[in-house]
Nucleic acid binder design. Structure first.
Length: 147
DNA sequence: GCCAACGTTGGC
DNA sequence: GCCAACGTTGGC
C-alpha cells in the first residue's frame, strides 16, 4: 500500500492510538476491489512511501479490520468527498491497518527495479499507478531478503 | 516543475 | 460504445 509520507507516513501509523488507522481516500476501483475482496484480517502488508526523496518500502503492517465503507466519501468537507457515494450504496471501501514494524532500511524503488526476480511485480512495471497491489509469497520473501 | 501513463467523464 | 478532453499519479 502506497502513501505519501507528507500525507501519512509509517511513523504516523506507528504513533496512532493502538498503532492502527483506517486506510481512507482510495478512489480507484481496482485498489478498492483489492481492499474489499482480497484483504483479510492478519494479512501482512508492505508500507510504501511515494512521492518523496527515496520512494520505497519502509515498513510492515497487517490488516486489522476487513473492508467497510470509507466514510470520508460522505463528508462534503473532506478532501476525498465523493457525492456519488452515499450511505445506502457506498462506492468506496477501506480496511484498517496496524503497524508491525519499520524496516531496518528503506528498500528503494530503485533497488527493486534492478532485481530480475521482481520482473512481474506490479510496482516496477512501467506506468504503474495503483496505490494498492498484490504481493505474492515469493515476492514478499524475496523483498524482505533485501532488508 | 515536468511529463508519461493511465483512469474517468461525458458528448455524440 | 467510441474517444477526446481532462484530471491524477508519481518518478525523475
Amino acid at each position: 500500500m502506497k502513501s505519501e509520507p507528507t500525507e501519512f507516513s509509517i511513523s504516523d501509523l506507528e504513533n496512532m492510538p493502538n498503532q492502527t488507522e483506517h486506510w481512507d481516500g482510495v478512489r480507484n476501483y481496482q485498489a478498492r476491489n483489492m481492499m474489499r475482496d482480497d484483504m483479510k484480517i492478519g494479512d501482512q502488508v508492505f508500507f510504501y512511501h511515494s512521492n518523496c526523496d527515496e520512494p520505497g518500502i519502509v515498513g510492515i503492517m497487517k490488516v486489522a479490520r476487513e473492508s467497510y465503507p470509507d466514510f470520508t466519501a460522505f463528508d462534503p468537507d473532506d478532501k476525498h468527498f465523493d457525492p456519488k457515494s452515499d450511505t445506502n450504496n457506498p462506492r468506496w471501501y477501506m480496511v484498517d491497518v496496524k503497524f508491525i514494524r519499520k524496516l531496518a532500511k528503506t528498500i528503494s524503488l530503485k533497488e527493486l527495479k534492478q532485481k530480475p526476480e521482481l520482473e512481474d511485480f506490479p510496482l516496477v512495471r512501467r506506468g504503474n499507478r495503483l496505490s494498492i497491489m498484490p504481493v505474492s509469497k515469493q515476492q514478499w520473501d524475496f523483498i524482505l531478503s533485501l532488508e
